[in-house]
């Protein structure tokens, strides 16, 4: 099965796709697509957005700047936005590094969890698993971001707005200054689809129950989001 066919299968027939990855693990194509797509979204967003506005919001929401005066915030915004080209370069270089590190962590977790539970696969297989699972979600994120950026009537677009299928956008409509805004904006249907693919993949590779596969694939996310929810909603 070619890479494009495999990518298509991941969306429409995930079980078949996972059997293919298990038999012939490969990660070059999805890794490249994920990196290029993520960098494209980041750069597009940076080139469109009102940088001062978004930096001001980021500084105000940070706990490190909680005691800053208005003048200090203004100065920090000025300093952060004084060199947009440098910001673009940093984004272009930093995003791939961050994406790869996240992929490595995810693959490492799957390897360790597999060793503990008897789902024995090599690191290369889990690494391949990680990137193929991420591929559809990343492409869908690009599509969502494109919808938002192309239809925006203002340049003041929050990063959270790039996820129109998030829980906050669909259900809660919390504003920037309300607690839970960032958390609810980060949980979206596209990400849930990606998690569903992980569960299907584990089930296909382990041959175990849905419950086992769900716990195996979702445990780190449940922990991260659980702690986040506890901190932001307390």
């Amino acid at each position: 099965m070619g890479n494009l066919s495999l990518a298509s299968a991941m969306l429409f027939e995930p079980r078949k796709a996972f059997l293919e990855i298990d038999a012939k693990p490969r990660w070059g194509f999805p890794l490249l697509v994920v990196i290029l797509t993520t960098v494209a979204i980041a750069l597009w967003y940076r080139s469109v957005v009102d940088l001062e506005w978004v930096t001001d919001r980021a500084i105000r929401s940070s706990s490190f700047t909680a005691n800053f005066s208005e003048a200090q915030i203004e100065e920090a915004v000025k300093r952060s936005t004084s060199n947009p080209t440098l910001g673009m370069v940093t984004t272009a270089l930093g995003t791939p590094i961050a994406v790869v590190i996240m992929g490595l962590i995810s693959a490492l977790y799957l390897l360790l969890a597999g060793k503990i539970t008897g789902v024995k696969r090599s690191f290369g297989q889990w690494f391949s698993f990680t990137w193929w699972v991420s591929l559809p979600a990343t492409l869908l994120s690009l599509l969502a971001a494109a919808f938002v950026l192309l239809t925006a009537t203002t340049a003041q677009i929050d990063q959270a707005d790039l996820k129109p299928l998030s829980l906050n956008a669909l259900l809660f409509q919390k504003t920037f200054d309300q607690s839970g805004y960032t958390l609810l904006s980060n949980i979206d249907l596209i990400q849930m689809f990606s998690l569903y693919l992980s569960v299907v993949g584990v089930r296909t590779w382990s041959g175990r129950s849905w419950l086992f596969s769900s716990v195996f694939a979702l445990l780190p996310y449940a922990l991260v989001y659980g702690i986040w929810a506890f901190i932001s909603l307390r």
């Binding site: 298509s8 919808f147 239809t151 203002t154 129109p164 669909l170």
Partner: peptide
């Protein structure tokens, strides 16, 4: 999966995204 089924899924995804963006605009997000 048949070709028709795939088209329906892709169309549903696109519609869902378009609907979500339109919903935000209708709520006066901008």
């Amino acid at each position: 999966m048949s070709k028709g089924g795939k088209i329906i899924i892709v169309a549903a995804i696109v519609l869902a995204l378009a609907g979500a963006v339109a919903l935000k605009k209708m709520r006066g997000g901008d």
